[in-house]
């Protein structure tokens, strides 16, 4: 059975010097998922990289949530296209 590593949102926000409302807003827009256990809110450790990236977008680059959503969507599309290019290049080598 796989166990998940959770990080308490309270502690995470203190260590990153950010407001808890920002994490709530990310969750409400569907950008991240949080888990609630006994009234305490947690983030899955697997999402840490994404959350930290959103923090940089919001606090360092002054990008609002709508902008973050758009960027995330476009980056996902870009990554998918890059993967497709690699896959097609590799397939092309079959005919070269």
């Amino acid at each position: 059975m796989q166990t998940k590593n959770y990080i308490a949102v309270n502690e995470f926000c203190i260590s990153h010097n950010i407001e808890i409302s920002f994490i709530s807003a990310l969750q409400q827009t569907g950008l991240i998922e949080v888990a609630t256990v006994d009234d305490a809110v947690f983030i899955d450790a697997d999402q840490l990289y994404q959350v930290e990236k959103f923090i940089r977008f919001y606090y360092d680059l002054d990008i609002n949530l709508e902008g973050i959503e758009t960027i995330t969507h476009l980056l996902q599309r870009m990554n998918a296209m890059q993967d497709e290019i690699i896959m097609l290049r590799n397939r092309l080598s079959l005919y070269e």
Partner: peptide, 14 residues
């Protein structure tokens, strides 16, 4: 700074 950072930030230019 923010204008250029939004253009060149590594998170936005993997």
């Amino acid at each position: 700074y923010r204008k250029f950072a939004r253009k060149y930030h590594p998170d936005l230019n993997p």
